[in-house]
Structures are given as structure tokens and as C-alpha cells.
Design a protein around this nucleic acid. Structure first.
Length: 291
DNA sequence: CAATCGTGGAT
DNA sequence: TATCCAAGATT
């Protein structure tokens, strides 16, 4: 429970190889960590970096963001993707101000209750920002554990009970060490134990990796993905929202109609954006980012 | 529980 | 060029 044979090797590797990402710096705040975690959901670090800096320069505290209309958050989000995350972050800011006196809560349950914060993100903030002992099971950690412990190339599509049990069993007792262990494994997955072309030659634990020792058997089972993008509602939504983001104010419907030929799909996408709160239909017939 | 939700870089 | 993938959450 308290010891695993490669813990020291992974921690030492992290000490020597960790990227100095700004949300890991000493001056990072719980708010800046929360912002990073929301932005990093399904989004590469290199694209998050500039967005994170700009966001925190403008809104260094939850209160500063909560004081602005949600549409400003959507505009600031720019092309990071999954723009409902901008809405979530804005709602997080308001919830933090309303329910927690303007301070990001430290309790896992309170974090979990924030919009857009799921099991992973709650654990990540509790661990990285507050030094608590939680299993942080993101895509990197899941892949590392799948290979190292289970001996398969990729974990299941969604984490199951067994994965949490395994992650818990590897967690060091000391909260501060557990927190460091979490980022270390995550970093190992991001830099070495990558999804494609893993760098087993420089891996600190390749000599006890179940998958490597088994001869790196390829993933068997159904293909892991299937999301095409061209022609989907998501693409249409992206185009519609881009028009509103790039305009200084409300736009006529004609401007939105111009981005997609097929009217039915276009209307469906626009309705969905309105339903999601990402677009505000005005009385004038124009459309705008939400107030 | 499977589908949905953006975007862009790498292979 | 097409596919894969990136610190997931929500319904």
C-alpha cells in the first residue's frame, strides 16, 4: 500500500526532466491551477500556454472574471476548442464568489460541485494546488499504468473501478509525496510513455514495465477512435461561433448564414449554441455572444 | 452508457 | 491526405 518498487525512480526522473510549466511555478494560485486544468481538458499544453497567460493577466482572480459577462470569457477563449469550457470557467468564478468567498475551495467534494469540474479535475486541483492525496487519473496516467502494471498498450476507453483501485494502491502515504507522484506519472506519460512511439529507451521504469517485458504486444480490440470532424455539427458550431467571436458586437443573421450552405444543419447548430448558452439571440434579430 | 462537444499539430 | 491524438465533462 505504501511502497511500490519504482516510485523512487519515477520521482527522480521527474526531478530531472519536468517541464517548468507556469501553473507548476511557486507563484501559481489555486485559481490559476484550476484555469490550467480546465484549459488542458482534451487540449495540448503548447496551445494552452499562451491562452492561460492571457487569461490570468486579464482575470487574475475568480472575482475579476465573475464581474464580467460570460460572453467575454467565450471571446477570450478564442480557438482553444470546446468553448463551453469558457462558460464553465465563468460559472466556476461566479460559484467561487457566491459560495466560497472568492477563494477556490480545497475540498474535493466542493471542487467536484463546480461546473465543468469532474472527477479528474477535482483531484488534480486538490492535489496540485493544495498538496492533497488524491489519485489523479488522466489519460497519461491511465496509459502509463496500463503498460507498466497491466501489460497492455492502451487502457479501456473509460476508466473503471479497477483502474482507480490500482491508482490508489500506488499512491504514496504522505500527501505532499502523493501530489508529486501524481504529476510525475502524468509527466512521464506526456513526455516518454506517449500514445504513439513511446520512448522506452529513456524510460526510468522500462525494466519493470509489464508491457515492455511482454514484447510490447499491440493493442487488440476495437479501434480506439472514430471521430471525424469535417461536415459535422461541431464544425458548423465552430464556424458560427467564430463569426461572433471575431465581430466587435452583434451580427445580423445573414453573417451566420454565410458560413454553411445546408440550412437545416446550420439552424440546428445555431439552436444548439443558443441552448448551450454560447450564443444570445437578440430581440432585433441579431445574434451576439451572451451577456 | 454511448454520443456529443473544437481545434490544430504530428505522423 | 487521412487518421490519430491532446491534463475530460456532461447528458
Amino acid at each position: 500500500m505504501t511502497e511500490n518498487p519504482y516510485r523512487t525512480a519515477v520521482l527522480a526522473w521527474y526531478d530531472a526532466n519536468a517541464r517548468d510549466l507556469p501553473w507548476r511555478a511557486d507563484d501559481a494560485t489555486p485559481w490559476s491551477v484550476l484555469v490550467s486544468e480546465i484549459m488542458l481538458q482534451q487540449t495540448p499544453v503548447v496551445r494552452v500556454l499562451p491562452a492561460w497567460k492571457a487569461w490570468l493577466e486579464r482575470w487574475p482572480t475568480p472575482a475579476s472574471l465573475a464581474a464580467e459577462p460570460s460572453g467575454e470569457a467565450v471571446r477570450m477563449w478564442n480557438r482553444l476548442g470546446y468553448p463551453r469550457r469558457a462558460l464553465n470557467l465563468h460559472a466556476c468564478a461566479k460559484a467561487v464568489v457566491d459560495r466560497h468567498g472568492g477563494e477556490v475551495p480545497r475540498a474535493h467534494a466542493d471542487l467536484l460541485a463546480l461546473p465543468g469540474v469532474g472527477v479528474y479535475t477535482a483531484a488534480a486541483v486538490a492535489s496540485f494546488a493544495f498538496g492533497q492525496r488524491h489519485a489523479v487519473l488522466d489519460t497519461n496516467v491511465r496509459r502509463v499504468l496500463a503498460r507498466l502494471e497491466t501489460g497492455v498498450e492502451y487502457p479501456p476507453r473509460t476508466p473503471g473501478r479497477a483502474e482507480y483501485t490500482l491508482a490508489e494502491s500506488l499512491l504514496p502515504e504522505e500527501p505532499a509525496v502523493a501530489a508529486r507522484w501524481g504529476v510525475a506519472v502524468m509527466e512521464l506519460g506526456a513526455l516518454v510513455c506517449t500514445a504513439r512511439a513511446p520512448k522506452c529507451g529513456v524510460c526510468p521504469v522500462s525494466d519493470r514495465c509489464a508491457w515492455a517485458l511482454a514484447g510490447k504486444p499491440p493493442h487488440d480490440g476495437p479501434p480506439r477512435r472514430g471521430q471525424s470532424y469535417a461536415g459535422t455539427d461541431r464544425q458548423v458550431r465552430g464556424r458560427l461561433l467564430a463569426v461572433l467571436r471575431d465581430a466587435p458586437g452583434p451580427v445580423p443573421k445573414a453573417a451566420l448564414d454565410a458560413v454553411w450552405d445546408e440550412a437545416a444543419q446550420r439552424e440546428r447548430a445555431l439552436d444548439a449554441l443558443v441552448a448551450d448558452g454560447l450564443v444570445d439571440p437578440l430581440e432585433t434579430g441579431e445574434y451576439a455572444l451572451p451577456g
